[in-house]
Design a protein around this nucleic acid. Structure first.
Lengths: 183, 183
DNA sequence: CAGGACATGTAACAGGTTACATGATTAT
DNA sequence: ATAATCATGTAACCTGTTACATGTCCTG
């Protein structure tokens, strides 16, 4: 129910073809709402039928034509409506947490290895966010409007990734067999 | 793909009927992997066919019979296999982040209100976790094995909720129109 | 000439949500 | 009486994933 709205936000920021949109869902907007290109195309078709977006075919040189979508007035209404409505809390699904909790029923060492892997992935993601923060939001005190909003979402990502990494470190510290216990 | 394994972990901790399992997915294990009772029943049926679990009907006085499930040897094998396998990162879907990012295209005040709501929900959840920590894990240095694992997962929840609340506070501080700007 | 980027999709399936259905017992 | 708790499900639907399909152009 919210991929539609995420697309409305993305298209409000910039009109795009399905392909471009799908790539934007691999970064930027996709950092907070992931979607595959198949999903994007399917939903875009549905949204055009509902008249939330309109499309215009744009011819290009040396490349296939593309269908550029933009938000219609109905789409703007819908986005406004959704923004004013309370969101219900997202269900949590952390396979890593399930694994840690169940580690005693299998190879706890393998689970620890996986915690390491996730730690590294999230640390990498954190670095990307910190880069973006440095590059695009050097002076946060002066931000306002849309830029401020983007910055705040990025801050959420930074805080989330930092928390994840430090949790992994705590798990690693607790489960990594200390020398005193090996004997 | 991981509800099966979450159920295997839950049933390894304690054999249960579908109804009890479903309730445990409303708390405890459900804090990290949510599932509705319909899902639990459906997957349990599938798992019994795959012989990962076995069931025994237990008659009760003054209450309907219940089918108590327990993990079979095949189920234990499957859980061990899954625990040794790398988990891929969970896709992130935060409708609240999408909302904040799109706040400029609608009523930013309503979005702020929703941020407050989420802040409160997560603060409540944090309190629950802190209560559990105090009650069940008073002396974390002495924990080992399964109890330690449970504790570490709880620590993850605490860190996540704390991070969420402080992110909301940052958003509220940044978007709450300061008196100097009202004039 | 092979591989990757550009561009748009379809089809089958798996996973999750919402609504409905049944029936007993216990507490208010 | 009525609602809540115990207990187990079915059916329809929506969302998301995986695999497949097609064709052009540009770069190495």
């Amino acid at each position: 129910m919210a991929l539609e709205q995420a697309i409305l936000v993305a298209l409000s920021e910039r009109a795009s073809a399905g392909y471009d949109l799908a790539r934007r869902f691999d970064k930027s907007i996709g950092f907070f709402w992931s979607a595959s290109h198949q999903q994007v195309y399917r939903v875009l078709t549905r949204m055009e039928q509902a008249r939330w977006v309109t499309s215009a075919v744009v011819a290009q040189e040396g490349r296939p034509d593309k269908k550029v979508y933009q938000v219609s007035e109905d789409g703007q209404d819908e986005l406004r409506r959704w923004l004013s409505e309370p969101t219900d809390p997202e269900p949590i699904r952390s396979a890593l947490a399930v694994k840690i909790r169940g580690a005693a029923y299998g190879d706890a060492g393998a689970v620890l290895l996986d915690v390491h892997r996730h730690r590294d992935q999230h640390a990498t993601r954190l670095d990307i966010y910190l880069e973006i923060e440095k590059r695009d939001f050097a002076d946060p005190a002066r931000l306002s409007g849309h830029e401020l909003h983007q910055y705040l979402v990025l801050r959420g990502g930074i805080s989330f990734e930092r928390g994840f990494v430090s949790w992994c470190d705590e798990v690693i510290a607790a489960l990594h067999v200390p020398a005193s216990k090996v004997t």
